[in-house]
Nucleic acid binder design. Sequence first.
DNA 1: CTCCGTATCT
DNA 2: CAGATACGGA
Length: 474
Amino acid sequence: MFELGGFWPNGGGNTSSASCHTVQREVHVLLVDHDFECLISTAKMLELCLYKVTCVELASTASKMLSSEKSNFNLVMANINSPDMHGYKLLQQAVNMGIPVILLSVEDNEFLATGALENGALLYIKKPVTLDILKCLWQHVEREKMSIHKEKGRLMGMTGANNNMGGIEFRGEVEEENNIVGSNNMKDNKHKGKRNILERKGLIEDEECEPEHQIIDNKVRKRLCTRRVYTEWTRELHGKFMDAVRQLGDGRCFPKEILKRMKVPGLTRMQVASHLQKCRNDNWRPPEERKYQQNIVPTASSDADSSGQIKLRRFGSMPCQNNNSLLFQEHPKASEGSRIHFEKDIPNDGGQTITINAPIMNSNQLYHESGPSNVRSGSNPSSYPRYPSDGFFNFLDMDYFIQNCSSMQQGSAMDMNQKTSLEAIHDSDQVYPDQQNSAMPNSDSGSHWSSETSIFASNSSETGGQETKITSRV
DNA sequence: CTCCGTATCT
DNA sequence: CAGATACGGA
């Protein structure tokens, strides 16, 4: 390891007043710096200030970690000059996720600083970072939470709802907010969801649950949602989505894979899954076309026809049944799939026999019948074959199709050998052992620098300047 | 536990 | 209505 130098105050753990410790312990910092020495020293200082710290060297790695559904960072501190050039990308991603960002740099560059702030950074700090600066960071996190809270309060006032803020309620609100800010808390919400379902089914009484939640009306939720995580699927974003879909090919279109190939910072698997669902059902239009597409031909777009509800879909498929499909049907490749005609007995209401047209495929490629289990029955899901032969693929994106018609004829498998940058990142991920105490100056517990800090790094070096300078967003 | 697909919500 | 979320199941 290396020497830390002599800047540690005695009993570093006492650098903040006790009242702040609780707050600080709740702050999880994602620290990003390719200058390994800075990374380590800053991490140690952060730990001394009782923050939870995760260290990475590259912005791209950090970006990937932010995308992880498990991430719950409250603050990102990153060297803007990441050698992988992902500094601003990371900034953008974190800002989109509602996570405060503090940028670090060895450069005393006003232009850089202004740019950072304009792009949503909270602070621009010229290195070296000092303990005094770090001690105060939790305040930025809190301030960010509070500003959201204020906004919520304001909106509540606007909508005439009870304004019960203050005291205990206030704290509760902030915590709830933190859930939104923090990141994906699906798991935590699951119980609530189950409860909701039970309530809907009348299986449990609805008593105390109402108060705060109902006060926050839809507009507020929508606003918060918009501010934080709402993703609009622009034509461009959809293009990336379709690129990924194309690379994967029919039968391999899974949200996680698509997400990986899209390489869009901040985008989550669930968002992709949601979009995938829309596209599969032909329920998505580019923003520009929406107003005019409202009541357009109610195509036989669902998987069920009017009389029956059977839904068979190949796992990972990307079918499309709108009018465009007809065009595809005429595509040479479209007619290649040999189809068998088989009959299937399905315990329908009346126990009739239904007929399904489908191409040959392994039975294990069939996904499953879906929909409420008590409605499983049906007839021909559609006159259009749902399962094009291998090598051909239906696209919702007609523009894309038209542009790429020729290349598509060669099949959908695209350059699968090429490694995505994300995979490359994954390859380079290393989790270093937690125990770094050898470099830790003695302090009360001697264990501040331990379990809470994880490092994702390899070695490199860059020597920072000597004068700290902070530029702050107001 | 992770991930998927579908239903449902906002 | 687009996008987010809930949730059961693989």
